[in-house]
Design a protein around this nucleic acid. Sequence first.
DNA 1: GCAGGTAACTTACTTCCAGTAACCTACTGG
DNA 2: CCAGTAGGTTACTGGAAGTAAGTTACCTGC
Lengths: 205, 205
Amino acid sequence: MRRVTTAEPRRKRMPKEQRKAQMLDVAEQVFAERGYVAASMDEIAERVGVSKPMLYEYFGSKEGLLTGCVRRARAELLERTRRAITGADGPEEVLRRGLLAFFGFIADHRRSWSLLRQEAAVTVPAAVAEVEGIRRQQTDLIAAVFAGFDPGAAPVVAEAFAEVVVGAAERLALWCERRPEVGPALATDYVMDIVWHGVGRRLAP
Amino acid sequence: MRRVTTAEPRRKRMPKEQRKAQMLDVAEQVFAERGYVAASMDEIAERVGVSKPMLYEYFGSKEGLLTGCVRRARAELLERTRRAITGADGPEEVLRRGLLAFFGFIADHRRSWSLLRQEAAVTVPAAVAEVEGIRRQQTDLIAAVFAGFDPGAAPVVAEAFAEVVVGAAERLALWCERRPEVGPALATDYVMDIVWHGVGRRLAP
DNA sequence: GCAGGTAACTTACTTCCAGTAACCTACTGG
DNA sequence: CCAGTAGGTTACTGGAAGTAAGTTACCTGC
Protein backbone atom coordinates (compact mmCIF):
# COMPACT_ATOMS: atom_id res chain seq x y z
CA MET A 1 0.00 0.00 0.00
CA ARG A 2 1.35 3.33 -1.06
CA ARG A 3 1.82 6.10 1.50
CA VAL A 4 -1.16 8.41 1.49
CA THR A 5 -0.07 10.99 4.02
CA THR A 6 -1.44 14.36 3.05
CA ALA A 7 1.04 16.60 1.29
CA GLU A 8 3.64 16.82 4.02
CA PRO A 9 6.02 19.77 3.62
CA ARG A 10 8.47 18.71 0.93
CA ARG A 11 11.66 17.70 2.66
CA LYS A 12 14.54 20.03 2.06
CA ARG A 13 18.08 19.16 1.18
CA MET A 14 20.90 21.09 2.65
CA PRO A 15 24.66 21.33 2.29
CA LYS A 16 26.43 19.21 4.87
CA GLU A 17 28.04 21.91 6.95
CA GLN A 18 24.80 23.79 7.33
CA ARG A 19 22.91 20.63 8.28
CA LYS A 20 25.58 19.74 10.78
CA ALA A 21 25.40 23.11 12.48
CA GLN A 22 21.64 22.84 12.63
CA MET A 23 21.85 19.39 14.20
CA LEU A 24 24.25 20.68 16.82
CA ASP A 25 21.91 23.57 17.62
CA VAL A 26 18.98 21.24 18.15
CA ALA A 27 21.00 18.61 20.01
CA GLU A 28 22.45 21.17 22.40
CA GLN A 29 18.96 22.35 23.19
CA VAL A 30 17.42 18.91 23.61
CA PHE A 31 20.33 17.64 25.72
CA ALA A 32 19.98 20.71 27.93
CA GLU A 33 16.22 20.28 28.23
CA ARG A 34 16.06 16.59 28.99
CA GLY A 35 19.58 15.64 30.00
CA TYR A 36 21.76 13.30 28.00
CA VAL A 37 20.13 10.07 29.10
CA ALA A 38 16.53 11.10 28.57
CA ALA A 39 17.18 12.87 25.28
CA SER A 40 16.23 10.62 22.39
CA MET A 41 17.86 10.56 19.00
CA ASP A 42 14.39 10.25 17.48
CA GLU A 43 13.29 13.49 19.04
CA ILE A 44 16.41 15.34 17.98
CA ALA A 45 16.03 14.04 14.45
CA GLU A 46 12.39 15.02 14.33
CA ARG A 47 13.08 18.53 15.57
CA VAL A 48 15.80 18.93 12.99
CA GLY A 49 13.30 17.78 10.40
CA VAL A 50 15.33 14.81 9.30
CA SER A 51 15.38 11.08 9.98
CA LYS A 52 17.44 9.38 12.65
CA PRO A 53 19.97 7.66 10.40
CA MET A 54 21.06 11.12 9.29
CA LEU A 55 22.29 11.86 12.80
CA TYR A 56 24.27 8.65 12.69
CA GLU A 57 25.63 9.57 9.27
CA TYR A 58 26.92 12.86 10.67
CA PHE A 59 27.98 11.94 14.20
CA GLY A 60 28.25 8.16 14.40
CA SER A 61 26.53 7.77 17.74
CA LYS A 62 24.63 9.59 20.45
CA GLU A 63 27.89 10.04 22.28
CA GLY A 64 29.45 11.45 19.12
CA LEU A 65 26.68 13.98 18.93
CA LEU A 66 27.31 15.04 22.52
CA THR A 67 31.02 15.31 21.82
CA GLY A 68 30.23 17.43 18.78
CA CYS A 69 28.27 19.85 20.93
CA VAL A 70 31.03 20.08 23.49
CA ARG A 71 33.71 20.59 20.87
CA ARG A 72 31.90 23.42 19.16
CA ALA A 73 31.07 25.26 22.36
CA ARG A 74 34.56 24.85 23.74
CA ALA A 75 36.07 26.16 20.54
CA GLU A 76 33.97 29.27 20.81
CA LEU A 77 34.87 29.74 24.46
CA LEU A 78 38.56 29.39 23.72
CA GLU A 79 38.35 31.84 20.86
CA ARG A 80 36.56 34.39 23.00
CA THR A 81 39.10 34.02 25.78
CA ARG A 82 41.98 34.50 23.38
CA ARG A 83 40.49 37.63 21.91
CA ALA A 84 39.70 39.01 25.34
CA ILE A 85 43.19 38.73 26.78
CA THR A 86 45.00 39.93 23.68
CA GLY A 87 46.70 43.22 24.39
CA ALA A 88 46.02 43.14 28.11
CA ASP A 89 48.65 44.85 30.17
CA GLY A 90 50.12 42.70 32.91
CA PRO A 91 48.97 39.54 34.69
CA GLU A 92 46.18 41.06 36.73
CA GLU A 93 44.57 42.53 33.66
CA VAL A 94 44.92 39.27 31.74
CA LEU A 95 43.30 37.29 34.54
CA ARG A 96 40.48 39.77 34.94
CA ARG A 97 39.71 39.96 31.24
CA GLY A 98 39.89 36.21 30.84
CA LEU A 99 37.46 35.62 33.68
CA LEU A 100 35.10 38.25 32.37
CA ALA A 101 35.10 36.63 28.95
CA PHE A 102 34.42 33.27 30.56
CA PHE A 103 31.50 34.44 32.67
CA GLY A 104 30.14 36.34 29.70
CA PHE A 105 30.23 33.17 27.63
CA ILE A 106 28.43 31.26 30.36
CA ALA A 107 25.75 33.90 30.58
CA ASP A 108 25.14 33.49 26.85
CA HIS A 109 24.95 29.71 27.13
CA ARG A 110 23.09 29.40 30.40
CA ARG A 111 20.84 26.58 29.37
CA SER A 112 23.43 24.32 27.91
CA TRP A 113 26.50 25.15 29.95
CA SER A 114 26.21 22.35 32.46
CA LEU A 115 26.16 19.86 29.63
CA LEU A 116 29.20 21.29 27.96
CA ARG A 117 31.52 20.66 30.85
CA GLN A 118 33.84 17.76 30.83
CA GLU A 119 32.00 16.23 33.72
CA ALA A 120 28.82 15.83 31.73
CA ALA A 121 30.61 13.23 29.69
CA VAL A 122 31.58 11.18 32.70
CA THR A 123 28.52 9.06 32.21
CA VAL A 124 29.90 8.11 28.82
CA PRO A 125 33.50 7.15 29.49
CA ALA A 126 34.54 6.76 25.89
CA ALA A 127 33.88 10.45 25.40
CA VAL A 128 35.92 11.57 28.38
CA ALA A 129 39.34 11.35 26.79
CA GLU A 130 38.38 13.44 23.81
CA VAL A 131 36.44 16.01 25.77
CA GLU A 132 39.27 16.24 28.24
CA GLY A 133 41.57 17.00 25.34
CA ILE A 134 39.34 19.80 24.18
CA ARG A 135 39.20 21.24 27.65
CA ARG A 136 42.91 20.98 28.09
CA GLN A 137 43.40 23.69 25.48
CA GLN A 138 41.80 26.07 27.91
CA THR A 139 43.96 25.17 30.88
CA ASP A 140 47.04 25.05 28.64
CA LEU A 141 46.36 28.60 27.56
CA ILE A 142 46.10 29.76 31.15
CA ALA A 143 49.15 27.80 32.24
CA ALA A 144 51.16 29.31 29.40
CA VAL A 145 50.14 32.82 30.37
CA PHE A 146 51.02 32.14 33.99
CA ALA A 147 54.40 30.73 33.02
CA GLY A 148 54.99 33.77 30.85
CA PHE A 149 54.64 36.04 33.84
CA ASP A 150 56.59 33.82 36.21
CA PRO A 151 59.28 32.05 34.17
CA GLY A 152 60.88 30.69 37.31
CA ALA A 153 57.89 28.58 38.31
CA ALA A 154 57.90 24.83 37.69
CA PRO A 155 55.55 23.77 34.88
CA VAL A 156 53.59 21.67 37.32
CA VAL A 157 52.82 24.76 39.36
CA ALA A 158 51.55 26.62 36.32
CA GLU A 159 49.32 23.68 35.48
CA ALA A 160 47.95 23.50 38.99
CA PHE A 161 47.21 27.19 38.87
CA ALA A 162 45.30 26.77 35.62
CA GLU A 163 43.26 23.92 37.05
CA VAL A 164 42.42 25.87 40.16
CA VAL A 165 41.29 28.91 38.20
CA VAL A 166 39.20 26.92 35.76
CA GLY A 167 37.67 24.83 38.53
CA ALA A 168 36.83 27.88 40.59
CA ALA A 169 35.32 29.71 37.67
CA GLU A 170 33.28 26.79 36.41
CA ARG A 171 31.89 26.08 39.82
CA LEU A 172 31.06 29.70 40.40
CA ALA A 173 29.34 29.81 37.02
CA LEU A 174 26.95 27.06 38.11
CA TRP A 175 26.37 28.83 41.37
CA CYS A 176 25.44 32.02 39.52
CA GLU A 177 22.43 30.22 38.09
CA ARG A 178 20.93 30.21 41.58
CA ARG A 179 22.04 33.79 42.15
CA PRO A 180 20.70 35.88 39.28
CA GLU A 181 21.96 39.06 40.91
CA VAL A 182 25.53 37.88 40.46
CA GLY A 183 26.40 38.74 36.87
CA PRO A 184 29.70 38.28 35.00
CA ALA A 185 31.28 41.41 36.49
CA LEU A 186 30.55 40.50 40.09
CA ALA A 187 31.55 36.89 39.59
CA THR A 188 34.84 38.11 38.17
CA ASP A 189 35.35 40.31 41.22
CA TYR A 190 34.79 37.41 43.57
CA VAL A 191 37.28 35.17 41.83
CA MET A 192 39.86 37.97 41.52
CA ASP A 193 39.46 38.78 45.18
CA ILE A 194 40.30 35.27 46.19
CA VAL A 195 42.73 34.19 43.52
CA TRP A 196 44.62 37.41 43.06
CA HIS A 197 44.71 38.86 46.54
CA GLY A 198 44.15 35.71 48.56
CA VAL A 199 41.84 35.36 51.55
CA GLY A 200 44.70 35.42 54.02
CA ARG A 201 44.83 39.18 53.82
CA ARG A 202 41.18 39.25 54.73
CA LEU A 203 40.79 36.56 57.34
CA ALA A 204 44.09 36.97 59.16
CA PRO A 205 45.20 40.56 58.70
CA MET B 1 8.31 -28.51 33.83
CA ARG B 2 10.18 -28.14 37.01
CA ARG B 3 13.53 -26.31 37.07
CA VAL B 4 16.35 -28.80 36.84
CA THR B 5 19.32 -26.49 37.17
CA THR B 6 22.07 -28.28 39.02
CA ALA B 7 22.28 -27.39 42.68
CA GLU B 8 22.94 -23.68 42.29
CA PRO B 9 24.34 -22.09 45.43
CA ARG B 10 21.35 -21.67 47.69
CA ARG B 11 20.38 -18.02 47.54
CA LYS B 12 20.92 -16.19 50.74
CA ARG B 13 18.60 -13.83 52.48
CA MET B 14 19.98 -10.80 54.14
CA PRO B 15 18.73 -8.01 56.37
CA LYS B 16 17.79 -4.95 54.37
CA GLU B 17 20.46 -2.56 55.52
CA GLN B 18 23.21 -5.01 54.82
CA ARG B 19 21.86 -5.80 51.37
CA LYS B 20 21.52 -2.14 50.61
CA ALA B 21 25.11 -1.41 51.53
CA GLN B 22 26.24 -4.32 49.41
CA MET B 23 24.24 -3.04 46.44
CA LEU B 24 25.81 0.39 46.80
CA ASP B 25 29.27 -1.14 46.90
CA VAL B 26 28.70 -3.04 43.69
CA ALA B 27 26.90 -0.20 41.95
CA GLU B 28 29.66 2.27 42.76
CA GLN B 29 32.16 -0.10 41.25
CA VAL B 30 30.17 -0.91 38.12
CA PHE B 31 29.28 2.73 37.50
CA ALA B 32 32.93 3.63 37.84
CA GLU B 33 34.01 0.83 35.52
CA ARG B 34 31.54 1.33 32.72
CA GLY B 35 30.12 4.79 33.25
CA TYR B 36 26.51 5.45 34.14
CA VAL B 37 25.05 4.94 30.69
CA ALA B 38 26.81 1.69 29.85
CA ALA B 39 26.32 0.18 33.29
CA SER B 40 23.38 -2.21 33.24
CA MET B 41 21.05 -2.95 36.09
CA ASP B 42 21.18 -6.62 35.14
CA GLU B 43 24.93 -6.71 35.58
CA ILE B 44 24.80 -4.94 38.91
CA ALA B 45 22.09 -7.30 40.11
CA GLU B 46 24.03 -10.32 38.97
CA ARG B 47 27.23 -9.19 40.69
CA VAL B 48 25.30 -8.59 43.88
CA GLY B 49 23.88 -12.08 43.50
CA VAL B 50 20.29 -10.98 43.40
CA SER B 51 17.65 -10.35 40.75
CA LYS B 52 16.99 -7.02 39.10
CA PRO B 53 13.64 -6.23 40.72
CA MET B 54 15.46 -6.18 44.04
CA LEU B 55 17.43 -3.15 42.92
CA TYR B 56 14.15 -1.47 42.03
CA GLU B 57 12.69 -2.47 45.37
CA TYR B 58 15.57 -0.76 47.14
CA PHE B 59 16.28 2.22 44.94
CA GLY B 60 13.32 2.76 42.66
CA SER B 61 15.28 3.38 39.50
CA LYS B 62 18.74 3.39 37.97
CA GLU B 63 18.94 7.06 38.74
CA GLY B 64 17.92 6.37 42.33
CA LEU B 65 20.76 3.90 42.61
CA LEU B 66 23.22 6.51 41.36
CA THR B 67 21.84 9.04 43.80
CA GLY B 68 22.23 6.50 46.58
CA CYS B 69 25.91 6.09 45.74
CA VAL B 70 26.46 9.83 45.69
CA ARG B 71 24.64 10.37 48.95
CA ARG B 72 26.60 7.79 50.84
CA ALA B 73 29.97 8.95 49.57
CA ARG B 74 29.18 12.59 50.20
CA ALA B 75 28.07 11.83 53.73
CA GLU B 76 31.39 10.19 54.41
CA LEU B 77 33.29 13.10 52.89
CA LEU B 78 31.38 15.59 54.99
CA GLU B 79 31.96 13.61 58.13
CA ARG B 80 35.68 13.39 57.47
CA THR B 81 35.91 17.09 56.81
CA ARG B 82 34.07 17.92 60.02
CA ARG B 83 36.34 15.73 62.07
CA ALA B 84 39.42 17.14 60.40
CA ILE B 85 38.72 20.79 61.08
CA THR B 86 37.52 20.31 64.63
CA GLY B 87 39.88 21.98 67.02
CA ALA B 88 41.92 23.71 64.34
CA ASP B 89 43.39 26.98 65.42
CA GLY B 90 42.53 29.92 63.15
CA PRO B 91 41.33 30.16 59.57
CA GLU B 92 44.52 29.14 57.82
CA GLU B 93 44.70 25.94 59.82
CA VAL B 94 41.03 25.19 59.19
CA LEU B 95 41.43 25.66 55.47
CA ARG B 96 44.57 23.57 55.30
CA ARG B 97 43.15 20.71 57.33
CA GLY B 98 39.89 20.76 55.39
CA LEU B 99 41.69 20.56 52.07
CA LEU B 100 43.93 17.80 53.29
CA ALA B 101 40.93 15.78 54.41
CA PHE B 102 39.31 16.32 51.05
CA PHE B 103 42.31 15.25 48.99
CA GLY B 104 42.79 12.29 51.29
CA PHE B 105 39.22 11.21 50.71
CA ILE B 106 39.69 11.50 46.96
CA ALA B 107 42.82 9.42 47.08
CA ASP B 108 40.83 6.68 48.84
CA HIS B 109 38.03 6.82 46.29
CA ARG B 110 40.04 7.32 43.12
CA ARG B 111 38.04 4.95 40.98
CA SER B 112 34.63 6.26 41.80
CA TRP B 113 35.27 9.90 42.54
CA SER B 114 34.45 11.29 39.14
CA LEU B 115 31.06 9.64 39.35
CA LEU B 116 30.32 10.98 42.78
CA ARG B 117 30.52 14.60 41.77
CA GLN B 118 27.38 16.53 41.16
CA GLU B 119 28.26 16.85 37.51
CA ALA B 120 27.99 13.15 36.95
CA ALA B 121 24.28 13.48 37.50
CA VAL B 122 23.86 16.19 34.91
CA THR B 123 22.95 13.57 32.38
CA VAL B 124 19.99 12.69 34.58
CA PRO B 125 18.39 16.02 35.41
CA ALA B 126 15.89 14.73 37.93
CA ALA B 127 18.79 13.70 40.11
CA VAL B 128 20.53 17.05 39.94
CA ALA B 129 18.38 18.85 42.49
CA GLU B 130 18.84 16.19 45.11
CA VAL B 131 22.52 15.70 44.52
CA GLU B 132 23.01 19.44 44.54
CA GLY B 133 21.34 19.51 47.94
CA ILE B 134 23.71 16.88 49.26
CA ARG B 135 26.66 18.79 47.93
CA ARG B 136 25.42 22.05 49.36
CA GLN B 137 26.08 20.75 52.85
CA GLN B 138 29.74 20.86 51.98
CA THR B 139 29.75 24.44 50.71
CA ASP B 140 27.49 25.51 53.57
CA LEU B 141 29.98 24.18 56.05
CA ILE B 142 32.79 26.11 54.40
CA ALA B 143 30.73 29.28 54.07
CA ALA B 144 29.83 29.09 57.75
CA VAL B 145 33.44 28.74 58.76
CA PHE B 146 34.41 31.66 56.55
CA ALA B 147 31.64 33.80 58.00
CA GLY B 148 32.78 32.85 61.49
CA PHE B 149 36.20 34.31 60.82
CA ASP B 150 34.92 37.38 58.98
CA PRO B 151 31.57 38.30 60.51
CA GLY B 152 31.48 41.56 58.54
CA ALA B 153 31.34 39.84 55.14
CA ALA B 154 28.04 39.62 53.27
CA PRO B 155 26.63 36.06 53.18
CA VAL B 156 26.85 36.07 49.41
CA VAL B 157 30.60 36.62 49.65
CA ALA B 158 31.00 33.68 52.01
CA GLU B 159 29.01 31.51 49.62
CA ALA B 160 31.09 32.58 46.67
CA PHE B 161 34.23 31.77 48.61
CA ALA B 162 32.93 28.30 49.40
CA GLU B 163 32.08 27.65 45.77
CA VAL B 164 35.49 28.80 44.63
CA VAL B 165 37.30 26.60 47.12
CA VAL B 166 35.21 23.53 46.37
CA GLY B 167 35.47 24.07 42.62
CA ALA B 168 39.20 24.54 42.78
CA ALA B 169 39.72 21.49 44.95
CA GLU B 170 37.48 19.21 42.94
CA ARG B 171 39.10 20.22 39.70
CA LEU B 172 42.56 19.78 41.11
CA ALA B 173 41.56 16.35 42.41
CA LEU B 174 40.75 15.20 38.88
CA TRP B 175 43.99 16.67 37.64
CA CYS B 176 45.91 14.70 40.27
CA GLU B 177 44.81 11.50 38.55
CA ARG B 178 47.08 12.42 35.65
CA ARG B 179 49.82 13.54 38.01
CA PRO B 180 50.50 10.66 40.38
CA GLU B 181 53.42 12.52 41.93
CA VAL B 182 51.00 15.12 43.28
CA GLY B 183 49.58 13.61 46.45
CA PRO B 184 47.17 15.10 48.99
CA ALA B 185 49.84 17.13 50.75
CA LEU B 186 51.17 18.77 47.61
CA ALA B 187 47.69 19.42 46.22
CA THR B 188 46.81 21.11 49.49
CA ASP B 189 49.91 23.28 49.19
CA TYR B 190 48.98 24.38 45.69
CA VAL B 191 45.48 25.37 46.66
CA MET B 192 46.64 27.12 49.82
CA ASP B 193 49.25 29.03 47.86
CA ILE B 194 46.68 30.43 45.52
CA VAL B 195 43.64 30.77 47.73
CA TRP B 196 45.31 31.88 50.91
CA HIS B 197 48.20 34.00 49.68
CA GLY B 198 46.89 34.90 46.24
CA VAL B 199 48.90 34.90 43.04
CA GLY B 200 49.19 38.67 42.96
CA ARG B 201 52.04 38.53 45.43
CA ARG B 202 53.82 36.18 43.11
CA LEU B 203 53.12 37.54 39.65
CA ALA B 204 53.21 41.25 40.39
CA PRO B 205 55.47 41.73 43.41
C1' DG C 1 8.03 -29.58 65.21
C1' DC C 2 4.58 -27.60 62.64
C1' DA C 3 1.00 -23.77 60.92
C1' DG C 4 0.89 -19.43 59.15
C1' DG C 5 2.56 -14.77 58.31
C1' DT C 6 5.66 -11.92 56.07
C1' DA C 7 10.10 -10.10 54.40
C1' DA C 8 12.99 -11.11 50.89
C1' DC C 9 13.20 -12.79 46.64
C1' DT C 10 12.29 -14.60 41.43
C1' DT C 11 10.34 -15.37 36.73
C1' DA C 12 8.65 -13.68 32.84
C1' DC C 13 7.16 -10.39 30.75
C1' DT C 14 6.38 -5.09 28.21
C1' DT C 15 8.14 -0.94 26.37
C1' DC C 16 11.31 2.02 24.56
C1' DC C 17 15.35 3.46 22.29
C1' DA C 18 20.15 3.24 20.22
C1' DG C 19 21.87 1.67 16.27
C1' DT C 20 21.68 -0.47 11.24
C1' DA C 21 20.61 -2.57 6.51
C1' DA C 22 18.76 -1.70 2.55
C1' DC C 23 16.68 1.07 -0.40
C1' DC C 24 15.10 5.91 -2.53
C1' DT C 25 15.10 10.75 -4.64
C1' DA C 26 16.34 15.52 -5.38
C1' DC C 27 19.81 17.96 -7.59
C1' DT C 28 24.15 18.57 -10.54
C1' DG C 29 26.97 18.76 -14.62
C1' DG C 30 27.58 17.13 -19.14
C1' DC D 1 17.30 14.65 -20.46
C1' DC D 2 20.11 11.27 -18.53
C1' DA D 3 23.81 9.41 -15.03
C1' DG D 4 25.91 9.80 -10.91
C1' DT D 5 25.83 10.94 -6.36
C1' DA D 6 24.97 13.58 -2.08
C1' DG D 7 21.59 13.61 0.93
C1' DG D 8 17.76 11.24 2.32
C1' DT D 9 14.11 7.46 4.02
C1' DT D 10 11.62 3.10 5.84
C1' DA D 11 11.55 -0.60 8.55
C1' DC D 12 13.78 -3.37 11.22
C1' DT D 13 16.99 -5.72 15.48
C1' DG D 14 18.90 -6.17 19.97
C1' DG D 15 19.34 -4.97 24.42
C1' DA D 16 18.31 -2.61 28.62
C1' DA D 17 14.92 -0.17 31.93
C1' DG D 18 11.20 -1.02 34.38
C1' DT D 19 7.03 -4.06 36.26
C1' DA D 20 3.16 -7.54 37.53
C1' DA D 21 2.40 -11.40 39.70
C1' DG D 22 3.89 -15.29 41.89
C1' DT D 23 7.39 -18.00 45.15
C1' DT D 24 10.48 -19.29 49.04
C1' DA D 25 13.25 -18.81 53.16
C1' DC D 26 12.90 -17.59 57.72
C1' DC D 27 10.64 -16.44 62.17
C1' DT D 28 7.09 -16.61 65.78
C1' DG D 29 3.77 -18.59 68.60
C1' DC D 30 1.78 -22.69 69.88
